[in-house]
Design a protein around this nucleic acid. Sequence first.
DNA 1: GCCAAGAATAGGAATCATTCTCATTAATGG
DNA 2: CCATTAATGAGAATGATTCCTATTCTTGGC
Lengths: 144, 144
Amino acid sequence: MQDLEQSVRQHLALQGIRLTPGRRTALGAIAAADGPRTAAEIQAAVTDIVPLSSLYRSLSVLTNAGVLSAQHGPEGVMRFELAEWLAGHHHHLLCVSCGVAVDVAPYREQEQAIEHLVERMAAASGFVVTGHRFEIEGLCEACR
Amino acid sequence: MQDLEQSVRQHLALQGIRLTPGRRTALGAIAAADGPRTAAEIQAAVTDIVPLSSLYRSLSVLTNAGVLSAQHGPEGVMRFELAEWLAGHHHHLLCVSCGVAVDVAPYREQEQAIEHLVERMAAASGFVVTGHRFEIEGLCEACR
DNA sequence: GCCAAGAATAGGAATCATTCTCATTAATGG
DNA sequence: CCATTAATGAGAATGATTCCTATTCTTGGC
């Protein structure tokens, strides 16, 4: 935890951004989670009272700074997690019923296959590829 | 096109749902597209004036009936396309700048790798897998 | 240590996609 | 041709997210 905060602080400093209390709180809640979280979930997880507008601003600052990554889940709400350089490469399991999102570790060999697939698919299209999303949908234990 | 409409009509009839003019229009616009479309895009593509509320209702009837599939794209808006049994299995290229979405054909061998990956990842989680999403993000020719 | 300038926050209004409600209109079976 | 049921249109309501403005912190220069 401490080293995470230090890494982030340093990363932000290079861009002239500081890790203020609000940002620190948001970062802590996200770092403690086992998957990407919505703004509302983060707000609920935190003990302080944080207005959503402030929370969203903190999240967007951290996202723009490359500390967090943001994605729209299948339910259409934005979910935030640590950026890949902090959390490591991984994928998600998403519950289509309750929306819960959990990280899953990748399998090295198959990642290679995926990279190939991405390249071949994009080749003919004129797109410049910047990334990919690979997410598994299903029903979590609670909703099953 | 005619056979698509017939297949759909038949599929719907089994569920006691009919292909009304509004639904037919929406279906036609989606079938003519080269990728998943938002409600607004469909509305714009169609020559008739269709209120968004009616369009959304038609789309949701067709989606619930299994004729269309709906997904939230990275910009957070819902995109509709023909269900897999009508359009065939494929993936998407998404422009992170303008949101444009294009279908890409899958490559047989790598699909296998993906299926494996999905199974292995889900195995330990307690999730019942219902599907997966694999989407490539990048910049389209226009935004590049 | 103190103050001005700039950044961060709270609070609330505004926006946008989507859903809901309800009144009106069309389609179907008898 | 009528009565019942489903489909449509129009607009209000909702929920996530963003924007705006006034207030409160931080920080560097004195």
